[in-house]
């Protein structure tokens, strides 16, 4: 197509918008452009300084975060009470999605490692969307379910691997 025409039909700078960014997050992958524009009114943009705690283990969680820019470290306490780094997340990653549907205490601590902008999506807003725009809300929740079930399957497979690896040597030792 002639670049002259393509420029008219594409909104300039759409790739820089929050809606476009949200569309690149796996949970919201199935949302259309209109839905993403609506989602943009639902989320909260929050700024964090380096080292600032986003949430701590045991806090009551009420939503998930997507990293727009910057980095986040996820830590968990082990049996000795020592902090152990679970993951270092960067722009485009998301975390805390388990708390989106039910109020549960956070199982890990999230800390910003640099100047970070997070996009927060919280239960209160999702519930509001369920009441007002059920179609879009169900798309969001379906995306969430898809991610969660993938993780569940993954975890189940790993668990099975571990239990087999535990069983195999013991069965080999016995006559």
């Amino acid at each position: 197509m002639d670049p002259f025409w393509s420029n008219i039909f594409r909104k300039p700078g759409y790739k820089a918008t929050l809606a476009y960014f949200l569309g690149s997050v796996p949970i919201f992958a199935s949302l259309g452009r209109r839905d993403l524009n609506f989602l943009e009114t639902l989320v909260h943009l929050r700024n964090y300084h380096p080292g600032e705690t986003i949430f701590a283990e045991g806090d009551i969680g009420s939503g998930m975060y997507v990293i727009r820019s910057g980095g986040v470290r996820i830590e968990m306490k082990d049996e000795q009470g020592e902090n152990r780094v679970q993951a270092d997340l960067e722009a485009g990653d998301f975390f805390g999605e388990i708390a989106l549907t039910t109020p549960q205490p956070r199982i890990a601590t999230a800390t910003a490692t640099e100047q970070t902008v997070l996009v927060g999506l919280f239960r209160a807003d999702i519930l509001d969307a369920v009441r007002k725009h059920p179609a879009i809300a169900s798309k969001i929740l379906l995306g969430l379910t898809r991610i969660l079930s993938q993780r569940l399957q993954h975890a189940g497979l790993r668990l099975r691997e571990q239990s087999y690896s535990h069983l195999e040597p013991s069965s080999g030792e016995q006559p």
Binding site: H44, R46, D59, I60, S62, P103
Partner: peptide, 9 residues
């Protein structure tokens, strides 16, 4: 930031 989730809820 620290109280945002609680206040919203």
């Amino acid at each position: 930031n620290r109280y945002f989730e609680m206040v919203l809820d």
